[in-house]
Amino acid sequence: MTQELIIDIATAKRSAETAEIMRRYNNVFQRHDPSALDELVADDCVIENTTPAPDGARRAGKSACVELWSAIATAPGTRFDIEETFVAGDRATIRWRFWMSDGNSLRGVNLMRVQEGQIIEAMGYVKG
């Protein structure tokens, strides 16, 4: 095998693994069930949240990340519409629309990074 083919196979395998982790992550919010987060989130995970503007709050460590995502996933009367998930290697981009309990919505994107089968980084951005 050529070096390029070996790299392409490794990247495709990494992309498939990342896609599966993102599928499971998105299901947390679709099903309003955060029980999978403990397995999906790395001990050294870092989140840069969408609020407060302009930079968002930073959460570091598994417990802080799981706590934030659990609260979002279980917020009464809310829902996420996943518009697209794009994966390349250990990175993913998730485009979404979040519907708040008052019927208003906002659109945004999460830039995600996975390492050794767990989410290690998530940066959220919303349209202003």
Score class of each variant (00 low, 15 high):
Met1Trp: 02
Met1Asp: 08
Met1Leu: 07
Thr2Arg: 09
Thr2Gln: 10
Thr2Trp: 02
Glu4Ser: 10
Glu4Gly: 00
Ile6His: 06
Ile7Tyr: 03
Ile7Asn: 07
Asp8Met: 11
Asp8Phe: 04
Ile9Leu: 15
Ile9Arg: 11
Ala10Gly: 08
Ala10Leu: 13
Thr11His: 10
Ala12Pro: 02
Ala12Phe: 09
Arg14Leu: 05
Thr18His: 04
Thr18Met: 08
Ala19Asp: 10
Glu20Ile: 04
Glu20Asp: 15
Glu20Gly: 06
Ile21Tyr: 02
Met22Leu: 15
Met22Arg: 08
Met22Asp: 04
Arg24Leu: 12
Tyr25Ala: 04
Asn27Arg: 15
Val28Gln: 01
Arg31Tyr: 05
Arg31Gly: 02
Arg31Lys: 14
His32Ile: 01
Pro34Asp: 12
Pro34His: 09
Pro34Lys: 07
Asp38Ile: 05
Leu40Cys: 09
Val41Ser: 02
Asp44Pro: 05
Asp44Trp: 10
Cys45Gln: 03
Val46Leu: 15
Glu48Pro: 00
Asn49Gln: 10
Thr50Ser: 13
Thr51Tyr: 14
Thr51Phe: 15
Thr51Asn: 13
Pro52Cys: 12
Ala53Glu: 11
Asp55Lys: 15
Gly56Gln: 09
Gly56Thr: 09
Gly56Met: 10
Arg58Asn: 06
Arg59Thr: 04
Arg59Cys: 12
Gly61Trp: 05
Lys62Ala: 10
Ser63Gly: 02
Ala64Gly: 08
Cys65Lys: 09
Val66Phe: 08
Trp69Gly: 01
Trp69Asp: 04
Ser70Lys: 07
Ser70Cys: 11
Ser70Phe: 07
Ile72Cys: 08
Ile72Met: 14
Ala73Phe: 09
Thr74Gln: 13
Ala75Leu: 14
Ala75His: 06
Pro76Ile: 02
Gly77Arg: 06
Thr78Glu: 04
Arg79Asp: 01
Arg79Tyr: 00
Arg79Met: 01
Arg79Ile: 00
Phe80Gly: 03
Phe80Glu: 10
Ile82Cys: 08
Ile82Met: 13
Ile82Lys: 02
Glu84Ile: 00
Thr85Gln: 06
Thr85Ile: 14
Val87Cys: 02
Val87Lys: 00
Ala88Cys: 05
Asp90Gln: 13
Arg91Lys: 15
Arg91Gly: 00
Arg91His: 07
Ala92Ile: 00
Ala92Phe: 00
Arg95Lys: 12
Trp96Cys: 04
Arg97Val: 07
Arg97Met: 07
Phe98Arg: 01
Trp99Lys: 03
Trp99Glu: 09
Ser101Glu: 14
Asp102Gln: 09
Gly103Trp: 04
Asn104Trp: 02
Ser105Pro: 01
Ser105Phe: 12
Ser105Met: 02
Leu106Gln: 10
Leu106Pro: 00
Arg107Cys: 05
Arg107Ala: 07
Arg107Tyr: 01
Arg107Leu: 01
Gly108Cys: 08
Val109Tyr: 01
Asn110Arg: 01
Leu111Cys: 05
Leu111Thr: 01
Leu111Pro: 00
Leu111Val: 09
Met112Asp: 06
Arg113Trp: 08
Arg113Val: 12
Val114Ala: 03
Gln115His: 14
Glu116Val: 07
Glu116Pro: 03
Glu116Ala: 15
Gly117Arg: 13
Gln118Arg: 15
Ile119Pro: 02
Ile120Tyr: 05
Glu121Pro: 00
Met123Phe: 06
Met123Cys: 12
Met123Val: 14
Gly124Met: 08
Tyr125Ala: 13
Tyr125Phe: 15
Lys127Ala: 13
Gly128Trp: 07
Gly128Ser: 12
Gly128Thr: 11
Gly128Asn: 09
